[in-house]
């Protein structure tokens, strides 16, 4: 079970809802992913085209825990406002704090992320900050009271996979709250590696929505995350330099 604040989840996959080819594909991808947490962004509504469907209307919101993000915020103040807007929907109390400090790399601004997280914790949110893989920053966020830490694997949407497994493993090792590897996942094996490192979950979006067949990839990610988790729990064998025979040496009929 993945426990975040007061919530418990069977699935360790958190799925983004951006950039799918269409709602039908998205709905099926969400279903086969078996995710229980869907991320969303908060944006101005086009009130003159109110008949335009919204993905929220296509799903049973009771079945999912909504995780709105503060994407678009460049400062703590903007992130806090976005979070409060999201919460006023009455649909959710979790928030993915995302304060982007650089438009080219979309890497998070650590100082503003800390400030926004602190403020939102005071306001009673369940706070999941998207952060860089800085080990001490992760520690500070946990000490502050964040309910999960979400270090990036590599830049958002880059599909580069896990570029610094060492830092991620340090973060996982020290954390007493769930660590969810967020951003940069490209392939199922990337997700598996994150889980084998001991991550409690993986948050991804583009890897599925941008795949040639998003439904198939959603299924693959579901299986990859489960496989990685099982492998982590099972405990891998130590690496050795030379071979060790799996077959017995005794009783061979050739001499």
């Amino acid at each position: 079970m993945l426990k975040i604040g007061p919530y418990e989840f069977k699935s360790r996959l958190l799925l983004g809802t951006g950039k799918y080819p269409n709602f039908d594909v998205q709905k099926e991808a969400v279903a086969v992913s078996e995710t229980e947490i869907l991320t969303f962004s908060v944006r101005r509504m086009n009130i003159f085209e109110a008949s335009q469907p919204n993905f929220l209307e296509k799903i049973d919101v009771e079945k999912y825990n909504l995780l709105p993000n503060t994407a678009g915020a460049k400062t703590a103040e903007e992130a806090v406002r976005t979070a409060k807007l999201a919460k006023a929907s009455g649909l959710c109390d979790m928030i993915k704090v995302e304060v982007i400090g650089d438009q080219k790399t979309l890497l998070p601004d650590p100082v503003e992320t800390l400030k926004a997280s602190e403020e939102l914790l005071k306001e009673g949110f369940i706070v999941l900050p998207y952060t860089s893989d800085d080990v001490l920053l992760a520690k500070r966020l946990e000490e502050m009271g964040c309910h999960a830490i979400m270090p990036g694997a590599s830049p958002i949407g880059s599909g580069q996979g896990i570029v610094n497994p060492l830092n991620l493993s340090f973060i996982i090792e020290q954390s007493n709250v769930p660590v969810i590897v967020d951003a940069g996942i490209g392939t199922p094996s990337d997700a598996t590696i994150a889980m084998e490192l001991g991550a409690d979950g993986v948050l991804l979006n583009t890897a599925v929505s941008g795949a040639e067949d998003p439904v198939k990839m959603a299924k693959a990610m579901n299986m990859a995350i489960e496989a990685g988790r099982l492998g982590y729990e099972a405990g891998r064998i130590p690496k050795k330099r030379y071979a060790t025979a799996s077959s017995p040496m005794e009783g061979m009929s050739i001499s």
Binding site: G18, F40, R43, R44, M45, N54, S89, T206
Partner: peptide, 10 residues
Amino acid sequence: IEIVNFVGGG
């Protein structure tokens, strides 16, 4: 007045 809603995002 600001009127906002949830849209797709990661």
